[in-house]
């Protein structure tokens, strides 16, 4: 799949969308280069899906302009739909049709010839590990299989630009890994990918550039490399206590001057350092000072920490959302 677009695959300026009094998207500017894998990261309700529905032509912006592959879609949302494939956050295929029929129908929607769509459908079913389920009704597929088939349907017509809304949300680990690997392959083959997610680690692993969106506003857009720069080579230790009131913060700062200490809202202590942390010495010091340590987790600082720093949204909040969606 080669990318036929040059320059900006997506160019949106001043996008606005209101639902009653709620400003779901507020003056969003996005420019995604052809061949780029762009992540749109934010918590539930941040405006990710609303922005995506405007970019894909499923809703009209209240203000702003949209260009897809150089085509102005502001007035006619359907103008560039031949260039895009869309994977919504929920399955959108016919439950009564089997996998093969669903893919063939998708191809027909884009004017593919019968023999061409039959060949492509068989090819994609094998590629997505669904060859054995080709003649099974879509309604009988597992969540992961459904997700894979929805993605296969979205790329049936070889779109140079692919939109995905939470592609790995709520599915099994194996399917998630397969989808991530397929997205990387598509990206390598030159397909431009615009992906919304609230899985920070996924965005970090897959994307070239990421936009953080909170309450309908983009608070930062940058390459993953540049976003990670402030935390590059830094380590963190999260220490939990049975009683956070007994943490001797002042004594800690005196005893370990090279470390940074922050008390988190949940009563946990966050310790940061530019070097690998020696957990033993720190925990011993705390226990000798009367604080009862229940857990100490060491890790390298990641995009999650950058996200928390920039957006002010706790990692725990995103984790809860992640778990909530995973259970669905």
């Amino acid at each position: 799949m080669m990318n036929i677009m040059t320059g900006a695959a997506i160019r949106a300026r001043g996008l606005e969308k209101r639902f009653g009094d709620v400003r779901a998207v507020q003056g969003v500017d996005i420019e995604v280069a052809a061949g780029e894998l762009f992540g749109f990261l934010g918590p539930n309700g941040a405006g990710k899906t609303t922005a995506m529905t405007m970019l894909t032509g499923l809703s009209r912006p209240d203000a702003g302009s949209i260009e897809i592959g150089g085509i102005d879609c502001s007035k006619n949302p359907k103008a560039a739909q031949h260039l895009i494939g869309v994977v919504p956050d929920e399955s959108n295929l016919y439950p009564e049709l089997n996998g093969f029929e669903n893919l063939c129908f998708s191809g027909a929607l884009y004017g593919m010839r019968r023999d061409e769509r039959r060949r492509k459908a068989s090819e994609l079913l094998e590629l997505f590990g669904l060859g054995a389920a080709a003649s099974r009704k879509f309604s009988g597929y597992s969540k992961g299989m459904k997700r894979r088939l929805v993605i296969a349907a979205a790329i049936m017509h070889n779109p140079p630009l692919l939109f995905l809304d939470e592609p790995t949300s709520g599915i099994d680990v194996e399917s998630s890994r397969m989808i991530r690997s397929l997205l990387s392959d598509l990206h390598r083959n030159g397909v431009t990918i615009f992906m919304t997610t609230h899985f920070i680690d996924e965005a970090e692993r897959l994307c070239d550039r990421i936009a953080f969106i909170v309450n309908g506003l983009i608070v930062r857009i940058d390459t993953v490399e540049r976003l990670l720069q402030p935390v590059h080579g830094r380590y963190a230790l999260i220490v939990s206590f049975s009683d956070a009131a007994k943490v001797p913060l002042m004594d800690l700062e005196r005893a370990f001057p090279l470390l940074e200490f922050h008390m988190l809202p949940g009563g946990e202590l966050r310790v940061e350092s530019g070097e690998a942390l020696k957990t033993g010495a720190l925990v011993r010091f705390l226990e000798e000072a009367g604080a009862e340590v229940t857990e100490a987790k060491k890790r390298v600082l990641s995009l999650e920490d950058v996200f928390v720093e920039i957006t002010g949204i706790g990692a725990g909040h995103m984790q809860k959302e992640k778990e909530g969606r995973g259970r669905r």
Partner: peptide
């Protein structure tokens, strides 16, 4: 309900 209509709206077929 099955969101299949949404997919039709996303296709390049005139409304």
């Amino acid at each position: 309900k099955a969101k299949a209509f949404e997919r039709l709206l996303l296709s390049p077929i005139p409304l």
